[in-house]
């Protein structure tokens, strides 16, 4: 674990609080703990807004525990279980790269190398020197049909290869916004890459 400064306090903003109340209200009395993941997510997004880094300081987890009326350890258990919650500061762009079998078969090793080269990150889990990128290796992201997958913050970028990865990262470095999520090979969803193979004409149009 890297050493990082933990903020001493955390408080939900007024607009976050509205979301918190809404999330808790979904569950019956005595079952507020069910809202824990939603609350952690709200806290992490607020941190992103405030500091540019989407992560959960301990103070934020304690605030979540207080909101739910549970012991802090119950919140730590959940936050440490899910890789989606970052317990240390991350870069502006959180690169989560799938290296599970289908992605690996489809060339995720090249994507890893490209990520490392373009960002200057040496190992998984590290943040680039400029603080822009954090690279993490994750298990199956569930979009194997368009493998390999690179998740940047909330968005999936699919059909990655070395060139597309480098281009994407260079664009981000240059200050461009994230492109629309989905396949970067230009295909629609998981339609066949060479183009449509069936339903090329409208059968109901008649002879």
């Amino acid at each position: 674990m890297s050493q990082h400064a933990e903020p001493t306090s955390f408080a939900f903003h007024a607009d976050s609080l509205k979301l918190v109340e809404k999330a808790i209200a979904k569950y019956p009395e005595g079952r507020q703990m069910s809202a824990v993941k939603t609350l952690l997510d709200i806290a992490q997004r607020q941190m992103e807004q405030d500091t540019g880094s989407a992560w959960l300081p301990r103070a934020a987890m304690d605030v979540v525990a207080a909101c739910l009326g549970v012991a802090p350890i119950r919140v730590y258990e959940v936050a440490t279980f899910y890789t989606m919650f970052n317990l240390e500061p991350v870069g502006k762009y959180h690169l989560q790269l799938c290296t599970t079998t289908p992605c690996w078969l489809r060339g995720s090793d090249d994507v890893v190398a490209a990520c490392k080269k373009a960002t200057g990150i040496k190992n998984f889990g590290e943040t680039s020197a400029d603080g822009m990128f954090t690279l993490k290796e994750v298990e199956c992201l569930g979009a194997c049909v368009n493998a390999p997958i690179l998740q940047v913050n909330d968005d999936y970028f699919e059909d990655m290869d070395a060139a597309r990865t480098t281009a994407l990262i260079e664009d981000l470095k240059a200050g461009k916004p994230l492109p629309p999520a989905g396949s970067l090979a230009g295909r629609m969803s998981s339609a066949p890459a060479p183009g449509q193979t069936s339903l090329r004409s409208n059968p109901s149009a008649g002879e």
Binding site: V70, A71, I73, R74, Y76, E77, T80, F81
Partner: peptide, 9 residues
Amino acid sequence: VAEIGGTFR
């Protein structure tokens, strides 16, 4: 005193 838990996975 809920102080111990199963953390990480």
